[in-house]
Amino acid sequence: MKAGSRLEKILEAGHFAVTGELGPPRGADAEVIKKKAEHLRNKVDSINVTDNQTSVVRMCSMAVCKILIEMGLEPNLQMVCRDRNRIAIQSDLLGAYALGIRNVLCLSGDHNKFGDHPQCKNVFDLDSMQLIATVKRMRDEGKLLSDQELEGGVKFFIGAAANPFGDPFEFRVTRLAKKIEAGVDFIQTQCIYNMEKFKTWLDQANDEGLTEKCYILAGVTPLKSVGMARYMQKFVPGLDVPEEYITRLKGVEKKKQAAEGIKICVEQIEQLREMKGVAGVHLMAIEWEHKVPEITEAAKLLPRPEVD
């Protein structure tokens, strides 16, 4: 065991893992978080807490992680390189560990141009690859980047993201290999809609033996409506929503589109579960946390296994 987190234990035991996601509020009300998180209790193994996603200011990820821990839930701390230099990153990691956080997801971060403060100065002192290596060094060598020995080490289960749909496509598996070499333990992918393209990426990863070296959790996001599907297809860079899903959603009356979206999502989870090299799913039900029980139930992911 590297960190002994619940997520790590589930994966180590060979269970099909389920992670959820929680976006912190644009305000300081802890009750909002508690309400959202309750929907995920016993439905997922651990919960990603986003770090000012899309560069919009929200409650800090680490604080929300702490609230989840107090609720008896397991958080995955997302950490982006956009807003912190190596001093802040290492300092935050030490603090996160002291608060009981055991899973860290290392990300470059969305560009600040997209957020609510496009005028800000960005940092990008490290990139996501170097962040992974930094966490690993702190964990395995007990040292900071400065070579300073840590008094009291950090044992993190290290995660990162992968986008099988970004360009250049041929470089995507190389990037996965680099993340593994940098020290990643688990990967959560970008939302998958184009199953065929994902399969191509996964096959390459299997061929290179990469799925033996880290756990791949396939990202899924239920489509709420035709509008959302179109938006993701057109405006979210690096997302590939095939026309067939839009046709399917269009084929039902508006009131039933959400139900159809959930049906599609459940089918996707079932397909992904059959694929060699997929160790679990990362269910990103954006502002739809209350649907997670329904989706996980329908996808036969419940009850979640007990570990320890």
């Binding site: 956009r82 470059s108 560009h111 990008f124 690859m129 986008n163 970004g166 190389t174 860079p237 690096g238």
Partner: peptide, 12 residues
Amino acid sequence: KSLMNGPCGGSA
């Protein structure tokens, strides 16, 4: 983003 280890997921 001054990335040194390959393109981010937003390259399209």
